[in-house]
Amino acid sequence: SKIRITWGDKTWEWDGDDEEVWKRILEWARNLGDEELWRHVKEWVDK
């Protein structure tokens, strides 16, 4: 399956939905430097 994140007018996609993928997404969000996006992603990961 895919994980799709839409933020503003951008959309990103990742293949898979296991823990490793979420770790990569969390790292990606942090590297993007958008605090609010990172917080949202972290909330999803922690669920």
Score class of each variant (00 low, 15 high):
1 S>G: 15
1 S>P: 15
1 S>K: 15
1 S>Q: 14
1 S>N: 15
1 S>A: 15
1 S>R: 12
2 K>C: 03
2 K>Y: 08
2 K>N: 05
2 K>Q: 06
2 K>W: 08
2 K>E: 02
2 K>L: 07
2 K>S: 09
2 K>A: 09
3 I>Y: 02
3 I>T: 04
3 I>V: 12
4 R>A: 09
4 R>C: 09
4 R>H: 10
4 R>L: 13
4 R>P: 01
4 R>K: 15
4 R>F: 11
4 R>D: 02
4 R>G: 05
5 I>R: 00
5 I>M: 05
5 I>S: 00
5 I>Q: 00
5 I>D: 00
5 I>A: 01
5 I>W: 04
6 T>A: 08
6 T>Y: 09
6 T>E: 11
6 T>R: 10
6 T>W: 07
6 T>D: 06
7 W>M: 07
7 W>V: 07
7 W>Y: 09
7 W>E: 01
7 W>A: 04
7 W>K: 05
8 G>K: 07
8 G>T: 02
8 G>H: 08
8 G>I: 06
8 G>E: 10
9 D>M: 01
9 D>C: 03
9 D>E: 12
9 D>H: 02
9 D>K: 01
10 K>V: 11
10 K>F: 10
10 K>L: 14
10 K>Q: 13
10 K>E: 11
10 K>R: 11
11 T>L: 09
11 T>I: 14
11 T>G: 03
11 T>A: 13
11 T>Y: 13
12 W>C: 01
12 W>M: 08
12 W>L: 08
12 W>I: 06
12 W>T: 06
12 W>S: 03
12 W>H: 06
12 W>E: 04
13 E>L: 04
13 E>M: 04
13 E>F: 05
13 E>W: 06
13 E>I: 07
14 W>V: 04
14 W>T: 01
14 W>R: 00
14 W>K: 00
14 W>D: 01
14 W>C: 02
14 W>N: 01
14 W>M: 02
14 W>E: 01
14 W>A: 02
14 W>H: 01
14 W>P: 01
15 D>H: 07
15 D>T: 10
15 D>N: 12
15 D>K: 03
15 D>W: 07
16 G>P: 11
16 G>T: 14
16 G>M: 13
16 G>N: 14
16 G>Y: 15
17 D>Q: 11
17 D>I: 10
17 D>R: 07
17 D>M: 09
17 D>T: 12
17 D>A: 14
18 D>V: 11
18 D>A: 11
18 D>H: 13
18 D>T: 15
18 D>I: 15
18 D>F: 12
18 D>W: 15
19 E>P: 15
19 E>Y: 13
19 E>D: 13
19 E>Q: 10
19 E>V: 12
19 E>G: 11
19 E>F: 11
20 E>N: 12
20 E>V: 09
20 E>G: 14
20 E>I: 09
20 E>D: 14
20 E>S: 14
21 V>F: 05
21 V>H: 03
21 V>W: 05
21 V>A: 06
21 V>K: 03
21 V>M: 06
21 V>N: 08
21 V>S: 08
21 V>L: 09
22 W>K: 10
22 W>L: 07
22 W>V: 08
22 W>R: 07
22 W>I: 08
22 W>Q: 05
23 K>V: 12
23 K>G: 13
23 K>F: 07
23 K>T: 14
23 K>P: 08
23 K>W: 09
23 K>Q: 14
24 R>I: 14
24 R>G: 11
24 R>N: 14
24 R>A: 13
24 R>Q: 12
24 R>T: 14
25 I>G: 00
25 I>A: 03
26 L>N: 02
26 L>G: 02
26 L>V: 08
26 L>H: 02
27 E>G: 05
27 E>H: 08
27 E>D: 14
27 E>V: 06
27 E>N: 08
27 E>F: 05
27 E>R: 03
28 W>V: 02
28 W>F: 06
28 W>L: 02
28 W>P: 00
28 W>A: 01
28 W>R: 00
28 W>T: 01
29 A>G: 03
29 A>F: 05
29 A>N: 00
29 A>W: 02
29 A>L: 03
30 R>T: 13
30 R>W: 15
30 R>A: 14
31 N>I: 10
31 N>W: 13
31 N>Y: 10
31 N>H: 10
31 N>T: 13
32 L>F: 15
32 L>N: 11
32 L>K: 07
32 L>W: 12
32 L>A: 12
32 L>C: 05
33 G>I: 06
33 G>W: 08
33 G>M: 09
33 G>R: 04
33 G>A: 09
33 G>S: 07
33 G>C: 06
33 G>Y: 06
33 G>D: 12
34 D>C: 10
34 D>H: 04
34 D>S: 06
34 D>W: 09
34 D>G: 05
34 D>N: 07
34 D>L: 05
35 E>C: 07
35 E>H: 05
35 E>A: 07
35 E>R: 03
35 E>L: 07
35 E>W: 06
35 E>Y: 06
35 E>F: 04
36 E>G: 04
36 E>N: 07
36 E>S: 07
36 E>W: 08
36 E>Y: 05
37 L>P: 00
37 L>Q: 02
37 L>Y: 04
37 L>G: 01
37 L>D: 01
37 L>E: 02
37 L>S: 01
37 L>K: 01
37 L>T: 02
37 L>H: 02
38 W>F: 15
38 W>D: 03
38 W>V: 13
38 W>I: 15
38 W>N: 06
38 W>G: 07
38 W>H: 12
39 R>S: 10
39 R>H: 10
39 R>F: 10
39 R>K: 14
39 R>C: 08
39 R>N: 14
39 R>G: 08
40 H>A: 09
40 H>E: 13
40 H>Y: 15
40 H>G: 12
40 H>V: 09
40 H>D: 08
40 H>C: 07
40 H>W: 15
41 V>F: 05
41 V>I: 15
41 V>R: 00
41 V>Y: 02
41 V>A: 01
41 V>T: 01
41 V>M: 05
41 V>G: 00
42 K>R: 12
42 K>S: 13
42 K>I: 13
42 K>H: 09
42 K>G: 04
42 K>C: 10
42 K>N: 08
43 E>A: 11
43 E>L: 07
43 E>F: 06
43 E>Y: 08
43 E>T: 07
44 W>M: 12
44 W>E: 05
44 W>A: 06
44 W>N: 02
44 W>D: 00
44 W>R: 06
44 W>Q: 07
45 V>Y: 15
46 D>L: 05
46 D>T: 10
46 D>N: 07
47 K>Y: 05
47 K>G: 13
47 K>L: 10
47 K>A: 13
47 K>M: 12
47 K>F: 05
47 K>I: 13
